[in-house]
Amino acid sequence: MSTTDWPLWEVFVRSRRGLSHTHAGSLHAPDAELALRNARDLYTRRGEGVSIWVVPAAAITASSPDEKDPFFEPAADKPYRHPTFYDIPEGVKHL
C-alpha cells in the first residue's frame, strides 16, 4: 500500500481562543488520529494553534466556480441590506 492510498485531509487551525478555526492547508494520513498528529507537526511547529480540526477532503462540498455569478448574484442587488443605504439627517446620534 502506498502513501497515495491515504486519504487527503483538510486542516483547520484555531490560532487562539476567541478566534474561529481557519483553513491552514492539507495533508495525507491513514486515519483521523494520525491526521491530527501530522497536522500538529506540520502546521503548528511554532505555536500557531491551540486547536486543530481535520476534515476528510472528500467530505467537503464546494460551490462551483462556474456558477459563481448566478450563485451569489441575489446578494448583489440588495443594497438596502447595508447600513450605508439609508439617509439619516445630520446630527442624529447613536444610529
Binding site: M1, S2, T3, D5, W6, P7, P30, D31, A32, E33, L34, L36, P56, A59
Partner: peptide, 21 residues
C-alpha cells in the same frame, strides 16, 4: 506506511475512515 494503513483499516473497519478518536 503499511503498518499505519493496516492499523487504520483495522480500526475503521467498514466505516468511511473517519473513526472517532
Amino acid at each position: 506506511r503499511e503498518a499505519a494503513a493496516a492499523y487504520a483499516a483495522k480500526h475503521t473497519g467498514h466505516t468511511d475512515g473517519t473513526r472517532t478518536t
